[in-house]
Structure formats: C-alpha cells, structure tokens
Amino acid sequence: MGLFKFSRSRSLWMMHFCTGCGAIEMPPTMTSRYDMERFGIIPMATPRQSDLLLVTGYLTVKTLKRVVRSYEQMAEPKYVIAFGSCTMRGGMYWDSYNTVKELDLYIPVDIYINGCMPRPEAIIDAFIKLRDMIDKGEANAWKNYRDNLDWYKQNQAKVFDINKWSAKI
C-alpha cells in the first residue's frame, strides 16, 4: 500500500485546462528552463488519463461547464490546482457579469496559487506542496466532492441555469 501511495505522489499526469492568462506560464514550466518532468509530472492528452487538473485562470460560465465535465471524467484519486487570483475571488474580473468568481463552489480545489499571474517557480512550488500533501494523505478534495456532491451540483445548477436570463439580454 505504501508503494502505491509513493507512486501516486511521484507520478502525476496533468491536464492543463488552459483558460485565461495562465496558459502562457505552462510552456516554460514544462520545457528546459523549469522542467517539471523531473518530478514525474507530464502533460496528458485527455482527462481520463490524468490525475491532476490545472485550471489556469478565470473561467466563464461557459468554460466552467467544460471544466466540471472534464473533472468528472477523471479517475479517482484526482487533484485540482487553481491558478491566480481570478479563481479565488474573481481577481480583476470581480465585477464581470459572466465570470465565475469562486472556483471552490463548483469543483473542489486542493491548492490555490496566488498571483496574477503566478511565475513558474510558484507553480513548481505548488507541485511540490501537492506531492507532500499526497504523501501525508491530506489531498482529499476528491473525497470531498464525492461526499458533498449535492451541494456542488446545486451550486453548479445556479450558474448554469442562466439560459433564460441571458436570452433576455
């Protein structure tokens, strides 16, 4: 069992859901300058194969639907890292009519990275922190999602159900 846990934290396949400005910070993190493959983290093509979902910036209501769907396709155990102030409190889009302000209401987030935009060092730091959390058994947001599915679904329904409202504008 210990070996499985060890391998789980040392081999994270990630899917970067490249919304917002954060996508541009991923290439340096992956390539020669910062090289995240040394921690066993490699980009994967589909949510089914990946363990780690990166939400790299603000989400509109439309993209949130896709994020939730991708998140639900991932096999457990799964982890989420959210980038930038936009995912925490809306950031500079705090008063926008169609961005999602708090990602935590819709999918469970393990780690937030502060900043607008976080530098690759900060991203690597978050990866290491996630690795330690998995080792200690603290990265349990996916269990949270399963246990409180009703609450999450309610919150999701609240924002997804704006079709009638948006048709009026």
Binding site: L3, F4, F6, S7, R8, R10, S11, W13, G40, D51, A75, E76, P77
Partner: peptide
C-alpha cells in the same frame, strides 16, 4: 511508478 500508480486508481 507510473504503472504502479495506474493500477492503484
């Protein structure tokens, strides 16, 4: 490690 992890999912 990758294979071990996959079998633990």
């Amino acid at each position: 490690l990758d294979v071990l992890k996959l079998f633990g999912k």
